[in-house]
Design a protein around this nucleic acid. Sequence first.
RNA 1: GGCCCCGUAGUUCAACGGAUAGAAUAGACGUUUCCUAAACGUUUGAUCCAGGUUCGAUUCCUGGCGGGGCUACCA
Length: 564
Amino acid sequence: MQETRKEFDGDVTLVVFPYVKASRMSPEATAQAIGLALQEACAEVQGFNVVKGFLNLTLSEATLQSTMDAICADAHWGITPVDTSLPAAMVEYSSPNTNKPLHLGHIRNNLLGYSVAQLIQATGKPVVQVQIINDRGVHICKSMYAWKMYGEGETPESSGLKGDHLVGKYYVRFDQQLKLEAEALIQGGMEADQAKKEAPCMKAVQQMLLDWEAGDPEVMELWKTMNAWVYEGFNATYQRLGVHFDKNYYESETYVLGKKDIEEGLSKNVFYRRDDGSVWIDLRPEGLDEKLVLRQDGTSVYMTQDIGTAIQRFADFSMDSLTYVVGNEQDYHFKVLFLILQKLGYTWASTLSHLSYGMVDLPSGRMKSREGTVVDADDLLDVMEATAKRLSEELGKVEGMDDTQRAALYRTLGHGALKYYILKVDPRKRMVFNPEESIDFNGHTGPFLQYTHARICSILRKAGEVGAWSWEDVRLAPKEKEVIKVLAKFPETVQKAADDQNPSDVANYLYDLAKTYNGFYQVHSVLNAETPHVAAFRVTLSRQVAGVLQRGLSLMGITAPEKM
RNA sequence: GGCCCCGUAGUUCAACGGAUAGAAUAGACGUUUCCUAAACGUUUGAUCCAGGUUCGAUUCCUGGCGGGGCUACCA
């Protein structure tokens, strides 16, 4: 069964080719026979037509009426209230390093993670949103070192820079210094790779990392200060994006986890120890490679931590699934991680999933920090808001609004455009982002959906209290039937999107809904309908569309404005 | 080298193995004494190549070609 395509008559279509063998008749005859039988047996089926092997069924008006009744009877059509007695689903996303600000890649990650969390919640399951913050390691030491050497005590307050941007500035500063020092060594005849390791600034950073691990008070102090700046900056951006986390995990706390699990795995013969003391797992029988899980000096690698952290999380929360929203360059890592946890015997290992999303590329290719082509998250949001401002003013949409309302609208529209632009694409595919011309406010865009919502709100305001109506007063026009049919699909769309962890299903559905509604709006007047009863019905229908748009957009973290 | 993704109008995206491959944008043309024209309508334009499986392939399989990623006792 599938929807009948627009160019044919009917509501649902059955493809009869698969039954031709059994019926021993031609496709047409088979379709005829099934159609007749269905018309006899089902009250819902009013009529049918056959085109080649396709049986197009027409539903009775009563069927559409009861569908509409069901939609109206449910104030949250499509959204299941959360049942807190169920085990939760954990979604991990964002997970930034603390050495530089968030960029466009993080935005895709955040929007996907947040949206998937909302989708799962909309199916009635509690959700725990978490991030793991990579707050330790060489990267942050580089920023710390450069700040110490060249910062002259600069702070977010003294510089007016957002904390994460300030720390990022010194990360870049370090890179410049390293290049300089390495260059000097290369001039002296050293290999490039070697030179980078031997550069004095890099040596200093390595020492700093050791000092950090030893708990050196001065280093710890600097580390805490600079990370605090970064968190302040991150939180500002998160707030702008509308995302939030129920719990933060910090690598500085989790990096010790996992070692004991490795020991345990050794005793179970899941892992083996090489002569040099390092610990490995052999995944060649599974078609993968041998993978290191503990260095010969006993320190952990990423895999070690991830093993330990996963185990910790299932101990921390009552939950029955864990989704990692991480870019597809880590496909191999997660394949290995999940396999290891399975081999360690954790029954929940089968509930782990990796939402592996594609890179966001620029027209020129991948973003490269070396070439300064990284699109900064805060800058991008600024640009979106500015664009919304310019367009709104040009179109004269903000007259009668005060400054606060205007600012709120620009944020709503600018962010809506960006979020929709990113979420309408299948997460698994890589996408191209063109800073100059990508984000539009016309056509298949967030603002288009927001506009449709605002226009309905305007009708609802003017309609005020509407009178009663009943089906005896209303005959459904084709455009109205189409709207009802699209509304009816919302719950299954949400469910499928949640199951597939794919917000683009909802994005594309909402576009279909808005498009269909606008087609109705164009040819039928709501407020000036033929009779007051029909007007009341159309107001009701419009209100349902606005409700689904609002709820659907909120699943993507997009606000539906009442005026624009 | 090995492994994993991806190739659809000029561009950005759609299409449980099903009908004449949909949108948007860009281009051309039209719609406003009428609920918001950020809208609606008409129009030009595409499945990388070669085989195979199937009643039927953009979709599944094989081989090319092209792009990206992973392949560190890095994260």
